[in-house]
């Protein structure tokens, strides 16, 4: 008799109580994201693949000064400077070897022209090594991004240390 009551209690009382947790969660929204159809937004300071910025008028910011290459602890940036038609310095070749890159963000900190930034892109797997050498064309943005977090700061800095012509 006692065994029957214990067995009945386990089946109809304890198990539903135990299952209650499962049942509760059955109707809750699952935590799991339906990747790749839904993607979780990254934190604003997430360090993904790099991108090269432009000025408001469309010209490239990168002047190929070499500071990001010098700061990089993994030695993954290669660049060749050259002179464009206006006589300004620009990067003729700018390559980052993403296999070497450790995504530390030192290049972004070192850049004096606010040209290179760590973006939010992290989906770039491939099946051969050569496609991991990202060139300037891959990294240059098409239009200057309006949501650049340091842009307003840079504008304020430029106003103070601006340029003015010598009066003759």
């Amino acid at each position: 008799m006692k065994e029957i009551i214990t067995a009945l209690g386990r089946t109809f009382i304890r198990m539903p109580i135990g299952m209650l947790v499962v049942l509760k969660h059955l109707f809750k929204k699952p935590v799991t994201l339906d990747y790749p159809r839904k993607k979780k937004p990254m934190a604003p300071r997430f360090m993904g693949r790099q991108y090269l910025e432009r000025y408001d008028d469309g010209s490239e910011r990168c002047v190929s000064c070499g500071l990001c290459a010098a700061a990089c602890p993994a030695d993954c940036i290669y660049m060749e400077p050259a002179e464009n038609e206006k006589g300004e310095r620009y990067a003729k070749v700018f390559e980052i070897n993403l296999l070497r890159c450790i995504f530390c963000g030192f290049c972004e900190e070192a850049c004096p022209e606010e040209a290179i930034f760590m973006g939010h892109h992290y989906e770039f797997s491939a099946d051969n090594r050569d496609s991991f050498i990202w060139t300037k064309e891959d990294m240059l943005v098409k239009h200057p991004r309006k949501d650049n977090p340091f842009k307003t700061l840079f504008r304020r800095v430029r106003k103070v240390y601006g340029v003015v012509e010598k009066s003759k």
Binding site: K86, G87, E88, Y161, G162, V163, V164, E165, K166
Partner: peptide, 15 residues
């Protein structure tokens, strides 16, 4: 203040 700049009248560019 603003720094002294030597500029040629014909080329009022950055460089």
């Amino acid at each position: 203040f603003n720094k002294m700049r030597f500029i040629e009248e014909e080329k009022r560019d950055t460089f």
